[in-house]
């Protein structure tokens, strides 16, 4: 098996260790509300659940970061059901992240479990609960890369379709609404680089330019402008069509 060229060309060694993940993924984003950065200040906030700003769209990853932070804090404080909520909230994101790393469904199931096991064992080092989603995705990606390197050594096999980065095929589009099918067709006409960037951005806790740079091999400085260009192209294509 070979490593897809589009993901994390710097390799796992260059990725930050989860234990060092003390930066705050949401700090520059619109969602987080706690500016103090003091771990002790989280207690009062999460016992009643962190309020989610009303202007956030549901389904946006920014919501997820905030809700996961509240669940993680509850878990740390021994509130019943905290870990259950955290797992149910973040598992879909980790599943798609694992699939984008080129893992098979069975490998993705394993990787998502390992990421949470790592969190339970080593998550005490996370100083800011708002970093928990990023910690989990970084841990999963690093591990996926280690695993791929090991299995490439072991099998030395030709790459198969399963090794390619995931890009769901619209052949299964019977499950899509007309509106989704139109959007997906337009996404499919963008350049490969734009498609990858948009997929990674769509699932990344925003804005997380360092992680996106590792995932796409693009310099950090070019992600913002490229993101804008890719979204602009997509919007231009959709103009005049009934998409929302």
């Amino acid at each position: 098996m070979t490593v897809p060229p589009t993901l994390d060309p710097a390799g796992p060694a260059a990725a930050p260790g989860p234990a060092g993940e003390t930066d705050r993924p949401g700090a520059a984003g619109p969602a987080p509300t706690d500016a103090s950065g003091q771990p002790g200040s989280d207690h009062a906030r999460s016992a009643t659940g962190t309020p989610v700003p009303a202007q956030r769209r549901s389904g946006d990853v920014g919501d997820l970061v905030v809700q996961a932070a509240a669940a993680f804090t509850d878990y740390r404080n021994g509130v019943a059901g905290g870990i259950d909520r955290l797992v149910r909230l973040v598992s879909p994101l980790l599943w798609h992240t694992a699939r984008q790393c080129g893992l098979s469904p069975a490998e993705a199931e394993d990787s998502v479990q390992q990421a949470f096991v790592a969190l339970v064992r080593r998550g005490a080092t996370i100083s800011d609960p708002l970093a928990v989603v990023r910690w989990l995705t970084v841990t999963l990606r690093r591990q996926a890369w280690r695993d791929r390197a090991v299995s490439a050594q072991r099998t030395a096999a030709e790459p198969t379709d399963l090794d390619l980065p995931r890009e769901p095929s619209a052949e299964a589009s019977a499950v899509l609404t007309d509106e989704q099918r139109r959007l997906w067709e337009h996404v499919g006409q963008l350049s490969e680089r734009c498609r990858q960037l948009l997929a990674v951005i769509a699932f990344a806790p925003r804005p997380d330019y360092a992680a996106i740079a590792r995932s796409t091999g693009m310099p950090i400085g070019s992600i913002g402008p490229t993101r804008g260009r890719c979204l602009d192209k997509l919007r231009a294509r959709l103009q005049g069509e009934e998409w929302r």
């Binding site: 990853v61 598992s91 769901p168 619209a170 299964a172 589009s173 899509l176 989704q180 929302r244």
Partner: peptide, 17 residues
């Protein structure tokens, strides 16, 4: 909205078990 739309498409085409 567009990014949320892309997430929804991935959820529909390759749903988490």
């Amino acid at each position: 909205e567009l990014l949320a739309g892309i997430v929804a498409i991935h959820d529909a085409l390759d749903p988490m078990p």
